[in-house]
Design a protein around this nucleic acid. Structure first.
Lengths: 338, 338
DNA sequence: GGACAATGAAGAAGATTACCCTAAAGAATA
DNA sequence: TATTCTTTAGGGTAATCTTCTTCATTGTCC
């Protein structure tokens, strides 16, 4: 059974297309008898108005585009989940795209989603984009007045609604926590050293150290990428000084650090306390369970979707930046407060 | 800057719309001079052909719809990743929807994606749908000739391309593995007792026991849902018989079992061996690391997308069912072979 | 002649394209 | 050389995709 259109039905009843259109939409303008016959025929043949035509007519698709850098990262999955929830409640669907941290792929996706495909966009920037500040694509989006919400990895150079994590404070609070439980040499291990998020957390870390009168030591900051051998870098770190606290900037990093530290014979949290970012399933089930900074991914997703939908409805409202506070979930990988 | 259309440009140059269309598409029919002027003007004003209009014209959207039951499950994220990869390589985008295991939500989504929004669909059924065999929605899809690929949780009642995991054999092989390492009382713990996947694995489990001359004991099969208290159920199980092997049907279940068993003082794998399904990050990093049945999620996603794209190109080819073999990753939660 | 019911025509959304028209240049013929 | 024919460059017309909506147009009845 092929797709059936108004035209087909019109031909079958030898009436005009507009009559059929009115009939299926139950307009009072059409006689009851004809209406009934048309509706029955339409139902029998599974008639459904063609969405593409309606989209064109209404200049709206009821879908929103989402671009995230990495879908295998639990944080982004949580955000996606939150977005989907709110979008769904409001009758929107989501087109989800993965930039794989590549600016090129991000740009291509942006070009695809531009020009009518979606009613709005929710994006967290690829690291490459953030580092090199290659934001022409985004600029075009905002200039075309396409509703846009940035979250987590945002850019100062773009004026739009944003949902960000309180990364500076998170770095600050967490470092103070380390100091409070008695740590003296706290290392900072980051797979996202170049992104705004990583930099802000580092700034918070420095501030906390300064306030405590501890000199910032660059050698305690370990930036690495997927290509680097974390094992080796950690080995240098542990040999450099008697490290007693390590902050890992995402979940998998924290878990890997835990493994490496344990395998070198250190006791966690006896010798070394460890804190990670992103509260996923991993951190709960490793031994010892990890103390984590929760960014409330699902909540961020919900807020981003809410902001976007508000803007779609009301395009001229002033831009808003929502800051979502992190919270520290203390578990067993950190020394207890005395 | 508002959106600009061919019409606007045509008015500006006082030529016809088709002339502009040809000019921006660099047709030889247009004089070099006029073409240049139009192209420059178009570029200046960020002209982009409206995708909605093109979609309507071409009756194709270059997007495929994906419906998965649960996005917080690592297996489905992996599949999604695989689908996205192949789709992207072929110029397709994906609309991803989450059914949350609810038939109602799945149906709504199906209705939305029907009627032109997508060029094809990749679906893993909600448990509810599978159990009650409520497949009218799917039937409409296939009757409308919309290309459809089912994966993992499929239905026998629907004729279409499928990618399935060799669940029966996986259940069988794994159970034999337990017996080989010397386990006598192997329990079977399933959060998806009602789905085809769960049933097939159970059938494989039974067959392996039968072949070994061991009587199947229903009490060793624990089906539970999100509402149940797994802790309690495990407690009954462990008190019932001296259990020395447990098979958990997904990753998080296996990890939870490990925790419960350890917390009750059993040694893993000394007293109890544990095997789980889905090779995600969790199972690698818990202690001891878990022996897992890998379903090759990303691979499944890639195959599903490939099948779908093939069918879009060639709608009349015969339906195909791809069976993806699982593999057992032996780690530290199972006794070593003598 | 006016009121009303039932239907149709036309235009709009935005783009592509097969086909048609015009003028001028070049070729062919007497 | 003059006339006719053919070609082609350059552009326009209109159909097409599908639906909805506004504004006629018909016919009937009082």
């Amino acid at each position: 059974m092929k797709k059936i259109t108004l035209k087909n039905i019109a031909q079958h009843f030898d009436v005009s297309i507009s009559t059929v259109s009115k009939a299926v939409n139950d307009s009072h303008e059409i006689s009851r008898d004809l209406k009934k016959r048309i509706q029955e025929y339409a139902k029998e043949h599974h008639y459904k108005p063609n969405k593409l035509a309606l989209n064109l007519l209404n200049r709206s698709t009821k879908t929103i585009g989402v671009i995230v850098p990495n879908i295998l990262n639990y944080f982004f999955v949580q955000v996606l989940y939150g977005i989907e929830k709110v979008a769904n409640e409001n009758g929107y669907n989501i087109i989800s795209c993965i930039s794989d941290e590549s600016h090129e792929k991000e740009s291509k996706t942006l070009a695809f989603l531009d020009s009518g495909t979606v009613d709005g966009l929710i994006i967290s920037l690829a690291e490459e984009t953030q580092v090199k500040e290659q934001i022409e694509g985004l600029r075009e989006i905002t200039e075309s007045q396409i509703p846009l919400v940035l979250f987590d990895r945002v850019s100062e150079l773009i004026d739009c609604d944003k949902v960000i994590v309180d990364d500076f404070e998170a770095g600050y609070k967490t470092t103070k926590f380390f100091l409070n439980i008695g740590c003296k040499n706290v290392a900072f291990v980051s797979p996202i050293g170049k992104s705004s998020v990583g930099k802000l957390r580092l700034a918070g870390y420095r501030k906390a150290l300064e306030e405590a009168g501890i000199k910032f030591d660059e050698k305690l900051v370990v930036n690495f990428t997927a290509k680097d051998d974390l094992d080796l870098l950690m080995s240098f770190l542990l040999n450099y000084k008697p490290i007693d606290g390590i902050l890992g900037l995402d979940e998998i990093t924290a878990v890997k650090i835990l493994h490496i530290v344990k395998s070198r014979g250190y006791n966690v949290p006896g010798d070394v306390s460890i804190v990670g970012f992103t509260n996923g399933q991993l951190s709960q089930y490793v031994t010892p369970s990890l103390t984590m900074v929760s960014q409330h991914g699902k909540f961020i997703g919900e807020k981003a979707a809410e902001l976007l939908i508000k803007r779609i409805k009301e395009p001229t409202r002033p831009f808003e930046t929502k800051v979502v506070k992190t919270s520290l979930l203390v578990r067993d990988s950190t020394k207890k407060l005395q």
